[in-house]
């Protein structure tokens, strides 16, 4: 007994609490604790603290797995990124029908975004999120030019951006075009197209001239507003909305697919 006492160390006590001792060693520790009530009380305290932690944290492990953490959802997103790289490699044209990008230099990383919690985001994405935050709240003046004048809207914004644009069709996804507006971005201009579904949920597609060669499909989130952004053929895009990441990804992919060179370009005359 006394020999065993001498041999017991802190590591044995921890191993005892954590059930990581051999049966024999655990028996020796138990005997030691029986003879040393003060140490036993301490071990009991440690065990109680551990049980308290387990009990307080149990609820998280009992929750169903959020769908965005499903491996299938993560893999779908990875595929989208991979497809995006392929697509850029293929140097497609979609929204961008005619060139004329001269003089539109990289604005994307020139200045830090104004909103502090968006630090670290490319300016284009930060601008897109800010613009969404401001204008998607508007009930009467959400857009400058309504969808009823779509042809005029597109011509006007194309002229100001410096490249010809078409508006992606998100009707099959339940989002109808409301219209669009012109926005400042640094010393240049950007376009915002706004969509709304039947429940009043709004999405914006932000487009600006951009010479960034970062072709990744990126997700950013500030507060409850998420944005998928990417660059393509001299234009920077951001799909912005307060919807789930999966839903937003689906919509961004739809926009993207409409840029796919393998598909006929919908309205080349615009």
């Amino acid at each position: 007994m006394t020999e065993d006492d001498r041999l017991i160390g802190e590591d044995d006590l921890d191993g005892f609490i954590d059930g990581q001792l051999s049966e024999r060693r655990a028996g020796e520790v138990a005997r030691y604790l029986a003879a040393n009530p003060q140490v036993a009380a301490r071990v009991e305290q440690d065990r109680a603290a551990r049980d308290d932690l387990r009990q307080r944290l149990a609820f998280i492990a009992e929750q169903p797995i959020p769908s965005r953490l499903r491996v299938a959802a993560i893999q779908a997103r990875r595929r989208a990124v991979w497809m995006g790289r392929l697509r850029v490699a293929a140097a497609c044209a979609g929204l961008v029908i005619a060139g004329g990008a001269s003089g539109w230099e990289a604005h994307a990383y020139l200045e830090p975004p104004a909103v502090p919690q968006m630090r670290g985001l490319p300016v284009a994405t930060a601008d897109a999120i800010s613009a969404h935050r401001v204008y998607s709240m508007e009930t009467i003046h959400a857009v400058e030019v309504a969808a009823a004048q779509e042809a005029h809207l597109v011509q006007w914004l194309s002229r100001r951006i410096g490249q010809k644009l078409t508006v992606p069709d998100l009707n099959p996804q339940g989002f109808a075009l409301m219209g669009g507006r012109l926005l400042p971005t640094g010393s240049a201009s950007a376009a915002q197209f706004m969509y709304e579904n039947r429940t009043g949920q709004r999405l914006t597609l932000y487009v600006r001239a951009n010479a960034g060669d970062d072709t990744e499909f990126r997700f950013a989130q500030t507060g409850d507003i998420g944005a998928f952004s990417w660059n393509e053929e001299g234009l920077g895009f951001a799909m912005v909305g307060s919807i789930s990441r999966e839903a937003l990804l689906g919509l961004a992919e739809t926009v993207w697919r409409q840029l796919d060179p393998a598909r006929p370009v919908p309205k080349p005359s615009l």
Binding site: I60, A61, E62, I65, P66, R68, L69, V71, I74, R78
Partner: peptide, 27 residues
Amino acid sequence: IPALRRFAWAMVRDSQAADDLVQDCLE
């Protein structure tokens, strides 16, 4: 995933931020 979420939450105490961490981890 349940254990990863539990650990992440215990470290950051914010469901959204914890699940962001877990998502990055799985990726």
